[in-house]
Design a protein around this nucleic acid. Sequence first.
DNA 1: TTGAAAGCGCTAACAT
DNA 2: ATGTTAGCGCTTTCAA
Lengths: 345, 345
Amino acid sequence: MQKEITIYDIAERLGVSATTVSRALNDNPRINKKTREKVHQLAKELGYRHNTLAANLRKQQTKTIGVILHEVNSYFATSVLAGIEKVTTPENFDILITHSAETAEREKANVKNLINKRVDGIIVSLAMHSHDIEHFAPVFDREVPLVFFDRVLQGAECTKVVIDNFQGGYDATNHLIGQGCKKIAHITGDLDLNVYMDRYKGYQKALKDHKIKLNKELVKVCGLNKAETTQAVTEMLEHQPDAFFIPSDFAAAVCMEILHNKGLRIPEDIAVFGFNNDMLSDLITPKLSTIDYPGFLMGEMAAKTLIEQIKLRRKNKNVKDHTIVIPTEIILRESSVRKTAKPKR
Amino acid sequence: MQKEITIYDIAERLGVSATTVSRALNDNPRINKKTREKVHQLAKELGYRHNTLAANLRKQQTKTIGVILHEVNSYFATSVLAGIEKVTTPENFDILITHSAETAEREKANVKNLINKRVDGIIVSLAMHSHDIEHFAPVFDREVPLVFFDRVLQGAECTKVVIDNFQGGYDATNHLIGQGCKKIAHITGDLDLNVYMDRYKGYQKALKDHKIKLNKELVKVCGLNKAETTQAVTEMLEHQPDAFFIPSDFAAAVCMEILHNKGLRIPEDIAVFGFNNDMLSDLITPKLSTIDYPGFLMGEMAAKTLIEQIKLRRKNKNVKDHTIVIPTEIILRESSVRKTAKPKR
DNA sequence: TTGAAAGCGCTAACAT
DNA sequence: ATGTTAGCGCTTTCAA
C-alpha cells in the first residue's frame, strides 16, 4: 500500500504549516477562507484521511462510548442498541459493543478493554452471573461516566436506567387473577437479578392483594432457555396450574408449544402471560399477552444520560447519580383473555 | 480525576527506562524475570492502564475489525455477529460495529469512519439501496482487507462469503411443487440484491423443470416489512395462489396471520414457505417450513477469511479474491407439508 | 491570520 | 539485559 497522506504532506505542497492545515481541515474560523478551501481541495485530491487515533491521543478523548451487553442475541438487545445509536450518532459518538455472554469473567475483561481504549463513557447491562461490581473499580477510580441499564445491582450507588419490573409483574398477575385464575405458576430466571426478583415481588404482591396465598410449589427458577423451560413447564403441570406467568416471551412461547402438544387450550384451560413484547409475541397463535419492555427507549435514555455526564465531566462539574425508571405497559392479547361471553373462534 | 499513570511514572519510581517498562509489561523475554515482576507489581499498585490509543498509533495497527451491517435488528444479524466474535476474540481482535440502516449514504459515512479509525479490515453486508461499491474506493486504494458477506454486489471482484440462494429458492419451490402446488405466489424483496434475485432465479428454474409457466402476476416485489407484506399478500390473494414462497420468515409469518384471519387453512388450502430459519419459524403455528440460513457460520467464515488476509497483508503478500459459498439446508415443517399428498421428500 | 514547538503514551531500531 | 532516541499524526499553547 502507498503511504498514508498526513497533514504534513499537504502542508509541504501548499507551503504552509501543518498547524494551518489542521485548522483548515477542522474548519477553524481563524483560517482564511481561501487557504481553507485550498487545503480541503488538495486533501481530497491526495485522498487524505484524518487519523482519528492520533487526534484522540492528543485530545485525550475518543468520542467513543463502550457498551457492555450481557447478550446480543435478542430483539431487546438490538432495540437498545438502536436507541443508543439514535442519540450517539447526531452527537458524533461512536459505539464500541462488547458482550459478556452472561459471565462475570468476560464482563471484567470487557471493562478492562474499554478502559484501555479510553472510551469516554460506558453503558452496561450486567451479566447473569455478575454479583458485584468490584470489577468496575477502574471505571470509578477514573471517574469515567458509567450508566447501568436493565440489569443493575440493587443497592449500588450509580446511575441506572431501569423499567418498573415490579409493576410489570404486578400488572400481569393482577390481570390473570381478574381472568379467574387462582393457581398461577411462575417460571422465572435467576432471582439474584433485579429484573426477575422485582417481577417476582410484583407477582407476590398481586396475590396478596387478592388474598391468594403464595404457593412455592408454583414458583420455579430456571435458565429460561428452551431445554430448561421445557423441563420446568412439564414438571409444573403436575401441580395443575390454571395460568403460567413466565417473564420472558421466548420461554412463554416454548411453554405454549408444550400446552398445545398436550391438547390444552389457551387461554380456556390455561392462560399464559409473557414479558418483553418481543416480535414473536405478536406472531404466535394465540397471540401472547405480555408486558411491553421499551428497549429502544431505554437505550435512548441511557445514552442521553451518559452523554450528559461526559459533558459535565469535561467541565469538571460534579455528576450526581440518579435512577431513571421507565414505565411499562401491559399488552393484553389472546393468550390470557378469557372471553366470558363468546369462546374465541 | 487523577492523572493517568504512564510507563514513565513506573520507570521513574523503579529507576529504569520506559523501554524496560514497556517490554516488561508486554512480557518480552529479553527482560529479566525479576524486573518484569517488579514492573507488573507496581503497575498493578498504581492502577496503570495500557493506553491502546498510543500503542496503536505507534504500531500502525489497531487490532480492530470494522463491521458494516445493513441492519442489526434481526436474529440473523446477531448470529453473524456472534460468529464473527467467535473467531476474533481468541485472535484478540476487537470489532467495531456500524450499521447503515439500508441507506447507501450511511454506508458511505461508515466506510469513511472506519478508515479514519484505521481498522485493520472490514466485513460488510451491503445496504438495500447500495447499488455500487464506489464508496469503497478508499478501502481498495489503501488495500485494507475487505470481505463482503450475504448481501454482495454481483460481478464485483472481491472476497465474498455467501450462501447458495439459488439452490435455496430452487429447493423451496421444488418442494412446494412436490406437494401438489401449481400456483406458487412469490413475494420477495428488492431484486437488485443478489440474495433476492438468486432466490427468484431458483424459483423460476424449479418451475421450468416442472414445466410450469412463470406467471408474473404471481410475483410481487415489496419491502417485506409488515405493512408492505400485508398489502402484497392481500393483493395476491385475488389471484388465488395455492402456495406462498416468501423468502423472509418474518414476512411469511405476517402472511400466515392474514391467511388465518381469512379462515384459510395452512397448508391444506395454501402452503407457506419462508427463508432464514429465524427463531420465530419454529414457534408459530403451524410451524414454518424454511431454508436454514447459517448466519453464525457466515460470520465465522467471513472473520476467518478476513483475518487471514490481514495477516497476509502484514507480510506484504498478495491476497487473492475468492468466493466462499455456504450450502443451505431445507427445513420442512407443518406449513408446507400436506399429509394427504406424500410424506416429506 | 499563520507558525514554531511541544507533547499525547507508546514502541522499536539501534546502541551499549 | 537495559537504555537512548526518534517518531507515529495530530492539536494546542504561545508567539509573531
